[in-house]
Computed example of a mutant assay.
Amino acid sequence: MTLYHFTILIRDANPSMEQLEDRLFEAGCDDALICFNNQTVYLEFDREATVAKEAVKSAMENIQSAGFYDLVLQESGVSSLAEIAHRTGLTRAAVSNYALGKRAMGFPKPLYGVASGSPLYSWREVANWLYANKKLSKAQFEIANIGW
């Protein structure tokens, strides 16, 4: 069994819902930390499973059994350089140097936000690059490649 860490946003929940924590706990999300950012509810899971897809699928099913259906696997989307640093434990400067080609070549190109100065990258592409360059754990690599 491998311990997988991943985040699921619950877009049809809000922090002021009565007994939100109890509903999620009773549904089987006892291995998740319930977090709030403004009016967004998200769960940070540390779930054991044989494979990554099994871990995420069972977490999604648990949340759905609590009555929530508008779910997003955070690792299936885009990430800023700051978020990439946070997810990997690398410094923001190290990630920026990778993106600029100063420490290694071939870092994925941004998908969005280039004109605004806040580029967003495909987390899957970045995770693949980081894993190939021995900067990301196998469990994180597997979660990024589920394709949810």
Rank of each mutant, 00 (worst) to 15 (best):
R103I: 11
I8Q: 05
C35P: 12
L71P: 00
K109Y: 05
V72G: 04
R92C: 04
F25V: 10
V51L: 15
D31C: 03
K138D: 02
A132S: 12
S118Q: 15
L81D: 02
T40H: 15
R92G: 07
A13I: 06
V72S: 06
R11T: 06
F107R: 07
A66I: 01
E21S: 13
A27G: 08
L20H: 10
A94R: 07
N133I: 01
K138L: 06
Q64A: 15
Q140T: 06
W123T: 06
S80V: 01
Y131T: 05
V72D: 10
Y98F: 10
V126R: 10
W129N: 04
D30L: 06
L100V: 03
D70H: 05
Y42C: 13
A99N: 14
G147V: 06
G106T: 09
Q19G: 02
L111V: 05
G67D: 10
T2G: 03
D46Y: 13
W129S: 01
T88S: 08
Y121D: 05
V51W: 15
A104M: 14
E44M: 09
L73D: 01
I34D: 03
S79A: 14
P15D: 03
R103N: 15
N145W: 09
A94H: 03
I34P: 01
P119A: 08
L43M: 11
V95K: 05
G113C: 03
D12A: 01
R47Y: 06
F68M: 03
Q74K: 05
F141T: 10
T7F: 00
T7K: 11
W123R: 10
Q64K: 15
Y42E: 15
V126P: 08
S79T: 10
V95G: 00
S122M: 12
E18P: 08
H86I: 01
S122A: 10
Y131V: 09
L120R: 12
V126G: 07
S122D: 12
F6Y: 05
F6Q: 02
Q19D: 08
V56T: 06
G106S: 04
Y112L: 14
N145I: 06
